[in-house]
Simulated assay, not measured.
Amino acid sequence: MTPIKQRVLGAAVAGSIGMATVLVSHFEGRSLLAYIDPVGIPTICYGSTAGVKLGQTKTPAECDQLLAGELGQACASVDRLVVAQMPPARRAALCSFVYNVGATAFQGSTLRRKLNAGDVRGACAELSRWVYAGGQKLGGLVKRRAAERELCEVGA
């Protein structure tokens, strides 16, 4: 069992939000100083981009608070946009995914359409297609989507 899978399953006690927090923090990493992400967007903490300016800094506590709020919004979007019942692991995978790509992209996705139509395996397989940023395939996204897909398929 991979270390990330062990951490995610260990967080299952805290439910979907706990599992998604482990996923996001692992794959995003934390930067207390704003930086430019691979597609040229100023980013800070665990991949936060809203209102970020280069040179900006945050404390670890501020980053944790920002992550909790933004991940909560991502999960609320998943709950609003998915009509199918989901086990906690699938919800966590989708919360991580929406945190990364945004609710608008998820809303118009084939992934969401398949999930709501009852095609869980087909929906989870769609995650593997979301590995490009700025037209380039990113290794970090390949690994993240593989982890999200594995969780998405739990109970399928």
Rank of each mutant, 00 (worst) to 15 (best):
A14Y: 04
A103E: 11
T49C: 09
F97L: 13
T43E: 08
E70W: 00
R149K: 09
I17F: 10
A125R: 05
T49K: 13
E62I: 13
V13Y: 10
G118H: 08
S48K: 08
V13E: 15
A11H: 11
K53E: 14
Q85D: 09
A68T: 10
V154E: 12
S16W: 03
A146M: 09
E28I: 13
V82Q: 05
R7K: 14
E150Q: 11
A61P: 00
I4H: 13
L66I: 14
E70H: 07
S25D: 05
E153Q: 12
G102T: 03
R144G: 10
A76R: 10
L94T: 05
D64F: 09
R129H: 11
K53T: 15
L81F: 08
T59N: 15
P88G: 04
V154H: 05
I4Y: 10
Q6W: 00
G118M: 02
Y132G: 02
N100P: 14
A93Q: 01
A156E: 09
V22P: 03
N116Y: 11
Q136N: 12
N116P: 15
A147M: 07
T2M: 02
P42Q: 03
A34E: 11
I17M: 12
E150Y: 05
N100W: 05
S109K: 00
A125M: 03
R113W: 00
R80W: 00
V39I: 15
F106C: 05
L32W: 02
P3I: 02
N100K: 04
T57K: 08
I4M: 05
V22H: 04
A105W: 02
G135R: 07
S25F: 04
Y35H: 06
V52H: 05
L67S: 10
V120F: 01
A74T: 03
Q136E: 12
D79N: 08
V120H: 06
Q107T: 13
I36E: 09
G29H: 14
V24P: 07
I17N: 08
P60L: 14
Y46D: 10
V52I: 14
C63V: 10
A68S: 14
C95W: 06
P88V: 13
G134K: 09
C95I: 11
G40W: 13
S77Q: 08
P3S: 07
R91M: 04
M1T: 11
V131D: 11
